[in-house]
């Protein structure tokens, strides 16, 4: 009976493959994608300065390829030192911000003109930059022997994890300005990044806590017996081990972060999904939903897979390097 079922299933798969292939090649009208590639990549960034976000995307792509090909290159003796690679990744953040926002020799470009893939990546990276240190702090608080620190962290973590992300983003857009002094105005993008980072910190905290709990208590006892102080024990002995254990979970979290940036489309930011929605509202592209969604799905899938692959590579590298990247 099972083999009968398998044959039927195989026939179904063959049919699905054939019709998908037929659609992809014959029936789909890809002009909506191919005609708007710059829009997907960088949004409606000013024409004259387009080279800036494109340069950033290009260097990110190059670095990704380098990182993924590193084991292969190292075997031939031409690979980059992994410390240099880690530092170049770190350098990408200020570089991206500078290239996009301008300043110094570059003309300033207001953040409402940023969009597309560049904005998606920027949102991911900078909310991650907020979430990681805050999450580690919260995890330390959650595992601390001080009752106040433990309770406060617990309230924050459990509270954040109980509410949906969109509610937090909504809070950031509409309510955050109410909690700030009248003179201070922060722009929409920054509000979104802060809200997103604060949300993700709670999830990072739980992953790091898992790592902290996996470090045997004898480690801190041994460190104390060597005469290290409480901060030194955490910084030199416990955290490096805990973070290394938490890397797979944190990778999942980072992939989730990238996917969840799509929620900003609901709030009207024109990141990858937002720009596609506004493109589909254009009468010229009526009924081209499937083409755009398939293209976006492929793009997100590729990004997430690349992230997961790179994280696995960092995991395999020597521990000291790993901590250098993780802690930043």
């Amino acid at each position: 009976m099972q083999s009968c079922f398998s044959v039927v299933l195989l026939a179904l798969i063959a049919w699905a493959l054939w019709s998908t292939g037929f659609w992809l090649v014959q029936r789909a009208d890809w002009s909506v994608v191919s005609g708007n590639l710059p829009l997907f990549a960088i949004g409606s960034y000013p024409e004259a300065s387009r080279w800036r976000p494109i340069l950033w995307l290009g260097s990110l792509l190059l670095l990704t390829l380098f990182t993924l090909a590193q084991p292969l290159l190292l075997r031939r003796g031409i690979g980059l030192n992994s410390t240099i690679l880690s530092w170049s990744w770190l350098l990408m953040m200020p570089l991206g911000l500078w290239l996009l926002a301008g300043g110094g020799v570059l003309d300033p470009v207001p953040s409402r003109l940023w969009g597309g893939l560049v904005l998606t990546l920027l949102l991911t990276v900078f909310s991650g930059v907020i979430a990681l240190p805050l999450g580690v702090l919260l995890a330390l608080g959650r595992c601390s022997e001080l009752t106040t620190a433990r309770q406060l962290s617990k309230i924050y973590i459990d509270g954040m994890r109980a509410v949906p992300l969109i509610a937090v983003l909504f809070f950031g857009q509409l309510l955050l300005p109410l909690f700030l002094p009248v003179q201070i105005e922060i722009n929409r993008l920054l509000r979104a990044v802060v809200a997103f980072g604060l949300f993700a910190a709670a999830y990072v905290a739980e992953d790091v806590r898992g790592g902290l709990q996996a470090v045997p208590p004898t480690q801190s006892e041994a460190a104390a017996a060597l005469g290290l102080g409480p901060w030194q024990i955490q910084r030199l002995v416990i955290l490096p081990q805990a973070l290394r254990i938490a890397v797979p979970a944190l990778t999942n979290q980072a992939v989730g972060l990238l996917q969840n940036t799509s929620l900003m489309a609901i709030l009207g930011l024109v990141e990858l999904l937002g720009i596609s929605q506004s493109l589909l509202a254009n009468p010229a592209y009526i009924g081209r939903h499937l083409e755009v969604y398939v293209w976006l799905a492929a793009l997100y899938w590729l990004l997430c897979t690349a992230m997961a692959l790179m994280a696995r590579q960092f995991e395999r590298q020597d521990p000291s390097n790993l901590i250098a990247t993780r802690r930043s």
Binding site: L273, Y300, W301
Partner: peptide
């Protein structure tokens, strides 16, 4: 232990988990 079943399940999980939910809902 049917390779067809396990491959299909792997495809389903690998595909769906790497694509944002919002995009899937819109689809």
């Amino acid at each position: 232990n049917n390779p067809l079943f396990s491959a299909l399940a792997g495809l389903y999980v690998g595909l769906i988990r790497q694509i944002p939910l919002l995009l899937q809902l819109l689809f």
